[in-house]
């Protein structure tokens, strides 16, 4: 076993136009590695747990920066940093859910360089996988976490399919709640994918967490005006209040009229490989008041179908509690 402190040799490309980046990404296909903030890049490569022939640094592409108003909401450039999201006046005013979620990512230092695209595209944080073991997700034959003695406190309670890792993204659930659209460019053109469809579970693709394929570049995130200025709730529970991944997080948007929930989208992070939308809860609370009584009436509806592992049963009551807090509107 060897440990590394030095980056491996690889080519570095620093395109300044999306088209050029796509061309390079296409050329190298799965041997190319897109890098924005680099927070889920350098560790992998340094540790030799993953490798690439070419590093395609996107930071020079101006068109992927900035937050713009559009006819129906806003468009956030893929390279917008998490710190910029927390400070952007439009996001703070209309979509504080996203600002709060971005503000709870990791630490200030990481938020200063980490981008919105990187945060939603990052790989899972299962410690076995990150160690470089050849588990299912790494193309192997087994999962080390999902065993009678596996150390799986942080792992999935829903929709595990061989791999039991969870989505580590704090902004992902918020974007799913806000019905964001992910703008993806490749050599064939542009496609727009709903955030809900952007994330991929291990049942569909055990080696990727998103629909992005080699040659694809996530260039922007669009947030429609539908949920602008709606009522929000965000909470992330982690062991530590900074520099930590969620044990469970919750992002909720609600259209409340005269105290009654007309519509809502409630999405939970860190309970399965993708942000988990609680459609049953959304339906159950439709037309009900946003208050303690409604919160209490939900009971364990959110976690009822969970399939916990050996050390993560706590995620069930924790998730139920966060749902109740979202419905109460307060911690």
């Amino acid at each position: 076993m060897s440990s590394h402190d030095v980056m491996p040799e690889m080519s570095l490309y620093q395109p300044v136009r999306v088209e050029d980046a796509i061309g390079i990404a296409n050329q190298f296909a799965d041997r190319g590695w897109l890098v924005g903030g680099g927070q889920d890049t350098y560790g992998w490569l340094k540790d030799r747990a993953k490798s690439a022939d070419a590093l395609i640094d996107l930071k020079g592409i101006e068109s992927m920066r900035g937050v713009k108003e559009t006819a129906d909401g806003i468009e956030i450039g893929a390279l917008v940093t998490l710190t910029e999201i927390t400070k952007d006046p439009i996001i703070a005013q209309r979509y504080p859910l996203l600002a709060q979620a971005a503000g709870r990512v990791a630490s200030p230092q990481i938020r200063n360089v980490g981008t919105i695209a990187g945060n939603v595209s990052q790989d899972v944080r299962c410690w076995y996988y990150r160690r470089g073991l050849n588990c299912y997700r790494a193309g192997g034959n087994l999962c080390y976490a999902d065993t009678p003695e596996g150390m799986n406190r942080e792992h999935a309670i829903f929709n595990a399919s061989r791999c039991v890792a969870v989505t580590p993204s704090d902004t992902g659930p918020a974007l799913v709640a806000l019905e964001a659209q992910m703008v993806i460019n490749n050599a064939s053109g542009q496609r727009v994918v709903a955030a809900e469809e952007f994330f991929v579970g291990p049942n569909l693709d055990i080696q990727n967490t998103t629909v992005l394929r080699p040659g694809d570049i996530l260039t922007a995130v669009r947030i429609p005006s539908k949920w602008a200025n709606a009522q929000f709730y965000f909470e992330k529970v982690a062991d530590r209040n900074a520099w930590d991944f969620a044990l469970v997080s919750l992002s909720a948007v609600m259209r409340v009229n005269n105290g009654v929930i007309e519509d809502s989208r409630i999405v939970v992070g860190a309970v399965q490989a993708t942000p988990r939308r609680l459609t049953e809860v959304e339906q159950a609370v439709r037309g009900k008041a946003r208050n303690d009584s409604t919160a209490d009436s939900i009971g364990d509806l959110a976690s009822r179908t969970a399939n916990p592992l050996n050390y993560n049963h706590f995620k069930m009551p924790l998730m139920d509690n966060l749902v109740k807090r979202a419905l109460r509107g307060q911690a």
Binding site: L142, D146, T147, G150
Partner: peptide, 18 residues
């Protein structure tokens, strides 16, 4: 070696055999 409705997946002692 996988989770099913009837059993949970066990530990794997010998990955070579698997």
């Amino acid at each position: 070696h996988i989770d099913t409705p009837w059993w949970d997946r066990p530990s794997v002692d010998d990955e070579g055999t698997l």
